[in-house]
Each structure stands twice: as structure tokens, then as C-alpha cells.
Write a protein that binds this DNA or RNA. Structure first.
Lengths: 235, 235, 235, 235
DNA sequence: CATGAATGAGTATTCATTCAT
DNA sequence: TATGAATGAATACTCATTCAT
């Protein structure tokens, strides 16, 4: 089996013949990924037939293979495309200079709204793991970990300000992240249709104040003073 | 059609009409489901080959079909088996008569511990949706909804006692449920290995007290007095 | 990807169910190989469609794959089957006790006749190399080398008897072998239809006596006395 | 359908009617065939990808199609190119005026040496038949038949001179031709590396003198007197 | 003339399911 | 009741060829 030479540095040679427009390549990929996302989400991975996608796009099946080496790469590109749009959203929802707590609240609602509007991406998350089990950490978590540092700083700042109780910052942030992650799945899988706004309000009420009344708060006291197990490693 | 003499361990000619020991049937199903669960979790649905399962069980492939009509039914049975064991766990973790809040705390830790020990079930949850998209509400949520009434009563009781703040009970319960659901997935998918005990402590700290410090709690007040939109409908 | 357990030592377990008849397996393979040989020879490797073979045999395509793991293995089995029948022929054509030179002459004619009757095997020889270039030494030569020792002994014996001139036995035997090998191909590829008997006579006349007349034999003397170039490495 | 301006290095409007330098065309074909031969020989016909050849030549795939109408034509051209070089060799190896027997001996060695140096051509011979079975007589034999008349005359002359025994000239020439043909394949396929010089010596020793010793030559007498079956058909 | 983007016919292989024994 | 031989539908991917630029 021969391997195509693939002259990496692309010696431009004589630019005769049909020139390749790199912009067009991006457009084409985008078109393909859009339809692809829809099919994967609707029919699952195995039951998505690239021929059907090609037919819908009115291109040849071989054309898809010109842009993506195989079905899995196509799937991952669709997934990455969705995650990129999530990241864009989060980035723009936390305007620099805004109040951190308000920004936090706003980000939560934006997150919920995003996945309400992009239910197909939720399906891709499921497929990634279900079809390629145990291969790599899911792309969602890779991205989340990349973002975690930023949130961590915000939180530590708020603790210093006294607006957020001290405690196991990492643990709490994970819990909040998991709450949102779980909510995203649950909304989609259980077919809920509560409005993102109200849902965000409920979540924030829980996350900000907890569920206990004043008396019970004394009964089950906060775990703050020595809550540095994870972070502090202190003696 | 010769009858071989070699009898020894052979079931001595099944008397027609006599129903086979239904207990034995259950044992067989149980054996099959155990191996099946492992394979589905490890290789995914499509890459699980019934022949391999049969080989491992040292039975014929046709025998599997005597107990389960097809591959999908086999998968669903494996999933149901896992959910049943989850239900058993939760049931036994809330002994009648115990303090509801303590029981609640204990149930959370039990839940986390359960999925730590049953990571294969987490994979089955993912597969269910990814391979059969949009067919039915996932079995997990059907079971969760069945349980929700019980938790709702517990919560209303606690609110009446004043130990839990009044508010949108349904919304809060959903949020807590989603928090646990998300944590289960995240633990598994992100490869976390924090101990269930510590993780439960962090989660309870958040759920019981929220993150805000005293001053900020005034800045972002609780949404309680009129938080009866969803539930209430009363008056 | 899971690998079938394949319990090698074949624990016979309970021999219930449809018993496998190992004899039947051989018959089935033989049937398949017969048709297969014909198709490969007629259409070439790539243009042989296993579906067509299955149709002709009135079996399912999957059945072929029960007996041969893939197309290449099927091809090689067909090739091996042909070579085995060649070996059988040669073995029976040299009855022990017969005069070696007469046996030699008889073997040559048998060889030519064999390939006249088995032109399909000639095609398989070509395919083996053309489709899987440079993979292994062709099966024909492996078998020929296995047989070479026997012929070598016969020749050395004849030299000792003085019936065959001394000389580079290996080289001469190779030349004779190549002469037959080339004749086999040439007969088939050039579409010759001379009778094996007459062709053997011509070949033997050449091999036994050479082409030169008495005078020219002195002009180009035999290379015998010091014909140890190969073996002797002598100066 | 927009027309892009970008002209710059474009060929300045080829003057219609003016024929391109036909020499250049030959050079291009030659370049292509050289690389092509290598690929066909190394990877076989099916696994030779024209794109890879184009990449290696640093030309576009379409350009190949400007010089050869399709893959098969490309293959046949490569084969013809090899055969032409064989013919050139043989022609120059038999200088007019030289002694015919010496020229014969010299031609044999040249033939062996040629294929040692052109192993790729041997592969092309195999491919021709294996991939296009039963389509036409192989090009090698067509060329050989074209040459056969010349050798026939040489032989008849030698017979008349008494230097070569009378006999079935056609049959003997075929046998010698097949011996060389078989040796060529065997050398290549069995991976032999004897020197062409020594190998030619062994072959000539066989062809000139045969294998038999003086006594055995009487035991198996020459088939000369009436050995005109083929040619003469005369009584 | 040269190019390379587009195409879609063509195919080996898998494996859930059936059913004769 | 258990078996495993038989089946054939289903499918990703390749690459020779075309042709707009």
C-alpha cells in the first residue's frame, strides 16, 4: 500500500491548472459539518450513512472523503465545531470588567440556553463516548479543564472579597460544573422544556444560598475552616 | 437421531409439559447479563459480538437467543439489571425512621459510591441514548421520576419543619438530581478519582449552604417568598 | 475489536446441538476451492467476486468466509491444492526401483501433461506473484526446493554410474527445472498445442544430447573436469 | 460562475495550429513510464495509484491522462518500453559477421544479464497476464515469435554446416527459448543470485552437450534421422 | 497545455439472526 | 433445550476517470 507523498510545505510549483481556493475549502467543510451534525444527532453514528449526507448536500460521496479522511474524523470535526461555538459563547458572555458574580449568573443562563438551542451537540457528546469507548477523555472535559483555571481565579478573588465563603474551591467548582453538565443532559434526555431563565434562577438560588434554613445551617455547619484537604495538602 | 448413553450430569430427559425450573432460567439470564454488561461497556454496542459473549460463557450463540429475543433486548435487560441494583441501593440507604436530612446526605454518598463501583452501568446509560437516539425517555429518567415523588414529600416535610428554606421544590430537587447525575458522568468520563466520601462532603456543603458569604447573601437575596410558580398553583 | 476466544484444545463440552462433521468440512472446502480455482484463473484475482462463486455453489457468501478467513487465504488454499496434486503426480510417476533415466524421462512428460490438463494452475502461479508482489517466495519454488534434494541424489548416482557426464549438478538441474518451468508457462501463454509426448521427446533430445554435432563438440568442449566452480571455490 | 483575473504565469495563449515539440512529448512519456514501471513492479497493478505516480513526478494526475488514455494503456506502454529495450539489447549482441554459435552463446548471457538488471520488467510480464487474463497473447511471445525466424535461419545454417545436429529445429529452438524464459522467471522469483556468466556457462554446457555420458548416449540414441515430424511432415 | 476538484461505481467483510439437528 | 452452520443485508472507503478553470 503506497502512501501519498503529501509534500507538506506545499511547493507552489507552477500555479497552472485549477487553483485551489483555501477559503472555499473552509466553506465546504462547514457545509458538510452542518449537515453531518444533524445526521449524527438524529440517527446515531452507525446509522448515519455518508451517502445520505452526500445526497443531501448534492455532492458525491467521494467529495466528503476529500475533506475528511474517514467517518470518525468527520464525527470529531463536527464535535469540535460544536465545542468551538460553545467556547465562543462563554467567552462573549463574560465581558471583562463586569461583576464576577453577575457574570457567573449570566454565564449559567447562557450555557443552558445554548444547549437548548443546540440539542444536536448534546447527542454528539453521548456518541463520542458510546461509540469510541475508553479512547480518550471526552472533548467536552478537555475544554472544560482548559477553562477551569479562569473560573478558579474568579472564585478565589471572590473569596478574598468575602463575597463567597471560603472552602474547597476546586471541589465546589467541580460540583457546579457537574450540576450544569448534568442539567444539560437531563434537559435534553428527559425532554424538559422549562425556560432557561427560570431554570437558571432555580440553580442560582441553590448554588448561592443552599437549601437549608437558618436553624438547620447550624445543625449542619459549613465545612470551611479546615476545608483545604484538596488544595492545601496542609498537615 | 441417536440417543447417546452418556448420561451422568445430564438433565434426565425433560418431562414434556413440565415447566423448567424458572429459577434456573433466572440464573442463566443473570450469567449472560453479567458478561454482556461487561462487553457492551468495554467495546460499545456495535463492537460487541454476541459470538464472543457466547464463547466466554462457553455456550452456543443460539442459546443467548433462547433467553433474549435480540441484541437490543439483551442490551436493555443489562441496563434494567443495573438500574434495579441502583434502586435496591437507594431503597436500603434510607431506612424508615431515620432523620430525613441525614438520610439525604447518606443517599448522596451512596449514589456516588455506587457508580464508582459500577462504571459499566454509566457506559450503558450513554449507549442507550447514543445507539437508539430519540426512541424513548432513557430508563434512568423513568426510574428517577418514579422516585421523585418520595423525595418531594421528604422535602415538603422539611420545609414545613423550617429546616429547609421554602422555594421551588421541584426545581431545586431537579437541580440536585442533575448535580448528582452530572457528577456521575463527569467522574467516569473525566477519570476523576476523588473519594466518594469527600466528594459527597463538597456537594453537601454546596447544596446545604450555597457558596455565598453573609454579605453577598443580601446582595443576591433568596427567591423564596413567592417562589411557588411551579409547584404552588395553590391558593 | 474483540478476538474470538477460540478455545484451541476444543473442550468438547456437551456435544448437544448440531454436531460438526469434520469430514463435511473437508468436502465443503474442496467444493469451494474447485469453483474458486476456476474463477481466479478465468477472471484474475480482482475480478473474481466471491459473491459469484457463492452463487454458483448455491451457498451464501458468508459461508465461504466460514471456511476461509479472507479472499487471499482462499486464493492461497486454491494454489496449495493445485501444488499438492502436482506433487502427488510426480511422486507416483517415479516408481521406486525403476531406471532413473527412464523415470526422469517419464517425469518430464508427466509434468508437461499435467499442466496441459491443469491450465488453471498456471494462471494461479502468475496471480500469486502479480497480485502479492514481493511477499514471499512463490509456493511453486518452495515445493521445487523441497523436491530438489531427491533429484540431486538421482543425478549424482547417475554420474557415478558414468551414465551422466560429471559437471555442475546443481546448475544443470536448475537449468532443466527452469526449462520445464518455462515450457509450462510458454505452452499456456503462447497457446501452443503440441502434444506433451512429442514435446517431451524434443526436450529430452536436447537435454540428453545437446545440440552440437561431433565436430562442434570439440570446438566448444564440455566443462567437466574442473566443473567445481560453484562448490569448490577453487582458483 | 466568475472568472478569476489572476493571470501572471499563464502560458501566453498557445498559438493555435503550431504543433508542440514532439520530442518533448516523448521525453515526458519516458519520464512517466519510468516511474510507472517502478510502481507497477513494486506494488502490482491494482495497488498502483496514479495519484502517487503523479505526486512523485510532481505533475498533476490529469497530466498523465494527457499522455496515456487510461491505466491499462499506461501499463502496456511501460511493458512495451521494456520489451523494446530487450530487443535493442539482443540486436546489438549479435553483430553481423560474428560466428553464429559464439553469438548464440553471447546472446544467452546477455539475456540473463539483462533481466538481472531489469527485474521490474519481469514483474510486468507476470502482471500482464495475471491482471488481463486471456485477453491477448503476451507481448513477450509476440516479440519472440517475430524474432524466431532469424534464429531459425541461423540454426538451419549451422545444421547445414554440420556444427549442429539435425533434428526438430522448431522444437529445439522452442525448448531453448523456454529454458531462457523459465530461467528468467526462476532467477527473479526464487531470488537466485548466481552470476549471469556462470549461469550462462551451465546452460550452454547443457544445451551444447546434453547431460549424457558416451555410453548412455547410445542407450538413449538421438532422434535425428526422421526428426522432421514438425517441419517436414514428410515420410 | 496542465491541473486537481469532483465523482460514484465497485467490493471485501462482518455479524445478527434463523433453524435443522 | 442447546447448538453452531448457514445466511445475506448492510457499509465504509478507494481510485480511475472526467472536465471546469
Amino acid at each position: 500500500m503506497q502512501v501519498r507523498a503529501k509534500s507538506d510545505s506545499e511547493t507552489p510549483k507552477s500555479p497552472r491548472g485549477r487553483p485551489r481556493d483555501p477559503n472555499l475549502v473552509q466553506q465546504r467543510k462547514e457545509q458538510i459539518l452542518k449537515v453531518t451534525t444533524h445526521h449524527f444527532a438524529r440517527f446515531g453514528y452507525q446509522d448515519t450513512d455518508l451517502q445520505v449526507i452526500a445526497d443531501e448536500l448534492e455532492i458525491g460521496k467521494g467529495t466528503i472523503y476529500r475533506y475528511f479522511p474517514n467517518k470518525e474524523a468527520l464525527f470529531r470535526a463536527a464535535l469540535d465545531r460544536g465545542l468551538a461555538s460553545l467556547r465562543d459563547l462563554i467567552d462573549q458572555k463574560i465581558p471583562p470588567g463586569s461583576d464576577p458574580l453577575a457574570g457567573f449568573a449570566s454565564a449559567i443562563e447562557a450555557y443552558l440556553r445554548f444547549f437548548r438551542e443546540q440539542p444536536e451537540l448534546v447527542e454528539l457528546f453521548l456518541i463520542e463516548r458510546a461509540v469510541f469507548p475508553g479512547r480518550t477523555k471526552p472533548a467536552y472535559f478537555i475544554q472544560r479543564e482548559q477553562d477551569s483555571g479562569r473560573w478558579n481565579e474568579v472564585f478565589r478573588h471572590l473569596v478574598r472579597q468575602g463575597r463567597v465563603r471560603p472552602g474547597n474551591t476546586d471541589g465546589v467548582l467541580n460540583a457546579i460544573g457537574d450540576l450544569l453538565y448534568g442539567t444539560m443532559f437531563a434537559n435534553h434526555l428527559a425532554g424538559r422544556n422549562e425556560s432557561p431563565h427560570e431554570q437558571a434562577r432555580d440553580i442560582l438560588d441553590l448554588v448561592f444560598h443552599g437549601i437549608l434554613g437558618p436553624d438547620a445551617r447550624e445543625e449542619f455547619p459549613e465545612a470551611h475552616k479546615d476545608a483545604r484537604r484538596k488544595t492545601g495538602k496542609k498537615r
